[in-house]
């Protein structure tokens, strides 16, 4: 399950943006153990290589969704896959978004760019159990309206609040312009009783977490998803170190109380 990839078949591909696609995978024979929101798989493109990709969807039949931005050799090969193709899958790996930790709290889901992908299954899990927590706020940032993921789903996520901010608006854009944290003023949440789930580029994570702490959210209730180079995902290759953390094992989801001092050191 974790050492040798299992074949999964691409059964559907859905373009999200100009360079991003969501692929739906189904096991060819054996199924990997079930994933939790926030965890990732190592996805292997035949002969090209393997990259960590968070699960963007966990389907009841053992299928998985992965949203892939085709920017590197492996992600480019995965981006180009058509239905019928086979990939190799290892996992599940890493820590997950701790939704039980947030029981009773207001939820604040803050995404930057493709950082929305690992948060999607969390949002769906929260929507499915509205009694378990307070208000669900989904704050989405993107470079431009064309860079937004899951556009047809976003409107259903306002329980009660869903906001979108873009850096570069295009003609006809009626939403917010600016960084994602500008949406915080609109979102109804009680900082002292809030758990935040933050994923996006590292600068966005730091800016968001700083703002949340400033507003009174507890650092250990700001959960962030971090990224480093990763080869094995089994804590044997040493690549994903961030100071004391091995992100394939101790992450990718880490409390900001632990992440903050590490992200503050340049080139750690």
């Amino acid at each position: 399950m974790t050492a040798v990839p299992l074949p999964y078949r691409v059964v559907d591909t859905r373009p999200e943006t100009a360079d991003t696609v969501t692929i739906r995978l189904e096991p060819v024979h054996e199924t990997l153990p079930s994933f939790a929101p926030g965890q990732f798989a190592m996805v292997y493109a035949f002969g090209v290589g393997e990259i960590p990709v968070s699960v963007a969807g966990i389907l009841p039949d053992g299928g998985l969704l992965h949203t892939i931005r085709g920017v590197g050799a492996v992600s480019g090969a995965l981006y180009a896959l058509r239905p019928g193709a086979t990939v190799g899958m290892r996992g599940p790996f890493g820590t997950s978004w701790d939704l039980p930790l947030a029981a009773g709290d207001d939820l604040l889901v803050v995404a930057g760019g493709i950082g929305l992908a690992p948060l999607r299954p969390l949002v769906l899990a929260a929507l499915a159990a509205p009694q378990a927590h307070g208000r669900l706020n989904v704050l989405v940032g993107a470079r431009s309206p064309e860079d937004l993921l899951y556009r047809d789903e976003l409107d259903g996520w306002a329980r009660p609040y869903r906001g979108v901010a873009v850096d570069r608006p295009s003609a006809g854009w009626k939403g917010r312009v600016g960084v994602v944290t500008t949406l915080l003023d609109e979102a109804p949440f009680t900082p002292a009783e809030t758990t935040a789930f933050v994923c996006g580029p590292e600068v966005m994570i730091r800016a968001t977490a700083r703002e949340l702490l400033h507003r009174g959210v507890r650092p250990d209730r700001v959960l962030v998803s971090l990224e480093r180079n990763m080869r094995c995902a089994t804590a044997h290759c040493g690549h994903c170190q961030l100071g004391p953390l091995l992100l394939c094992r101790d992450g990718p989801v880490v409390g900001y109380d632990r992440a903050e001092p590490l992200l503050a050191v340049r080139e750690l």
Binding site: Y44, G47, G49, C232, H236, C237, G238, H239
Partner: peptide, 8 residues
Amino acid sequence: FCTTTEDV
């Protein structure tokens, strides 16, 4: 112990 991977 650090290692990397090669796919050929």
